[in-house]
Structures are given as C-alpha cells and as structure tokens.
Amino acid sequence: MGEAALKLPNIRINEKLCKGCSICVDFCPTNVLEIKGTVVAVKDLAACTRCQLCDLRCPDFAISVID
C-alpha cells in the first residue's frame, strides 16, 4: 500500500560540531531525535516530516535534513 513511495529523509549530523544542547530534540514535533552521550542521534527516522525545524534552530551548524 504505497510503501514503495515512502522515501526516508537523510538527516545529516556533524558530531564534531554538535554540543548536545538538545534544542533540536526539544523542538522536533515528531520526536525523531535523541541525545546519545553528548551528541544528538536519530532515534526514529521514519517519523521525520522534513519540517526542517532542527536545521533552522541548531546553533552549531551540526544538523541538516537533506531530502
């Protein structure tokens, strides 16, 4: 049922730049992200709606959602 049409987004995280402030985790409307150790990690990629809020509000140039 249309599963083939579902293309998962590509969330690119630069772990060298991430400071683990958790702004992206807190603002994500579908809880895609989590803090693992000191940096952010993807928890549930399928839930991502590509809203780009994490990219827009990340202060550290560390995360972006590439289609």
Partner: peptide, 27 residues
C-alpha cells in the same frame, strides 16, 4: 533555502564556534 549550504560563507576550519551549548548567537 533550507537545507542551506552555510559552508559557502563560513571559515569551516574555525568551527566549532566558542559559543556555549544552546547559545542563540549561532541561530
């Protein structure tokens, strides 16, 4: 223009910046 290629305007070797985790200056 998101995703946006910030590297075009940055000096990538200078990153990560000195601002604290959660500081709004980066945004």
């Amino acid at each position: 223009s998101v995703p946006f290629d910030y590297d075009k305007y940055l000096r990538p070797k200078k990153l990560p910046h000195i601002w604290c985790p959660g500081c709004g200056h980066g945004i």
